[in-house]
Amino acid sequence: MKATATAHPIQGLVKYHGIRDPDLRTPYHDSISLCTAPSNSTTTVAFEPDRNEDTYVIDGDRVDGRGAERIRTVVDHVRERAGIDHAVRMESENNFPTNVGFGSSASGFAALATALVEATDLELTHPEISTIARRGSTSAARAVTGGFSDLRAGSNDADCRSERLDVDFEDDVRIVGAVIPAYKETEAAHAEAEDSHMFQGRLAHVHEQLADMRDALGRGDFERTFEIAEHDTLSLAATTMTGPSGWVYWQPESLAVFETVRNLRSDGVPVYFSGDTGASIYINTTAEHVDQVESTISDLGIETRVWRVGGPARVRNADAALF
């Protein structure tokens, strides 16, 4: 009972903020994202009858504390569904910077859920697997279905699951990742979201923003899609910065990227910034302009990665196993 899976991290376009049910990790409102490839998390799991306890290792380090609790929530759910009680050995590796705002928890839990389902021979669709991954990280639901994905809010697994969207310009999208190392705590920000005086304001306008985003994606409107994502980035930051802890994730380099992107756009380049909870920034552009955009961001002295839109989580062959 062993399997390996790979999933891509997500970039939030209309981002969720705050968790309605901390056990199921169901959000207050819908969210839409895209997956970034070739960045990925690869996870191997094995159910071992002779093992006394679960062991979880990420990037060579054993996971304990709250991190292990979140992994165990997903593992226990699959054990219950599969009717087994064996201990699990899990190892996971990321090929991109983690804990800097690039969605590593999403890809990690998406790969974990996919590998667990395969190892236990549960026959589930990607949307069904997304409800399992969501228990570890709400955004992981969208990393399971990949591409441009839409996670509907709900109170149960029948309603709160991710679906992939058909987007005409998906193959033309390029994402320049501006890597700005500054550790962040996304879970803590979600926990106090309701305490921000801006939170109710965000809830009041986010549904219109979601409708506009779905419309733009359905019409194949690149510019409008990423214009909305840029504005949503600012809305999310306003909410996190006005919570009790006053989370300010952006660094001077983040602000320099914003200004550079706006200057490029004023020169006619189709380019927009976006960010989740973290200092690192996504810069969304097209295949035609990506070299110019990447070069301009690099000239700021910022490390960059270039990505395209990635597909859904997938099971790997046995030779890809991490142990």
Rank of each mutant, 00 (worst) to 15 (best):
G301H: 02
L234M: 14
P252L: 11
E163L: 11
D221V: 08
P270N: 01
F199E: 06
G83H: 13
D267V: 00
D157R: 13
V144K: 02
V74H: 01
I19R: 05
D195T: 13
T42V: 15
E128Y: 07
A256H: 06
H205K: 11
L264Q: 10
A37M: 06
W250K: 11
P49S: 09
F273T: 04
V315P: 00
I175R: 03
N40D: 01
E123H: 14
R62G: 01
A133P: 00
V57P: 05
R142A: 09
E48P: 02
D276P: 07
L203D: 08
T296P: 04
A216S: 13
D195Q: 15
L112F: 00
Y16L: 05
G246F: 04
V257K: 08
A46Q: 04
N284M: 13
E230I: 10
I71D: 03
N52G: 03
D172K: 02
H207T: 12
D85N: 14
E123I: 07
H86P: 00
V176C: 10
V88H: 05
D166E: 15
T145H: 01
M213R: 08
R174Q: 04
G177F: 05
I32H: 10
R161P: 03
D267F: 02
R152G: 12
K15H: 08
E128P: 12
E163G: 01
S107E: 08
P252C: 10
I175D: 15
I10L: 13
S149N: 04
R305F: 14
A178M: 12
F226G: 05
A216T: 05
F109D: 04
D159T: 14
T6H: 01
D157V: 07
D319H: 03
E53L: 10
E208M: 09
P244I: 04
A204P: 01
T44E: 02
T131N: 09
V293I: 10
S266P: 00
A320T: 07
L116F: 13
Q209F: 06
A115D: 10
F169D: 02
G103Y: 11
A287K: 11
H289T: 14
I32V: 15
F226C: 08
D30Y: 07
A191S: 15
H231K: 12
I10S: 15
W250L: 15
F199Y: 14
L122H: 03
D121P: 02
D166L: 12
V309W: 03
P181H: 12
V88T: 14
F96G: 01
V315I: 15
R142Q: 04
F148T: 06
R308A: 11
R308V: 11
R224Q: 07
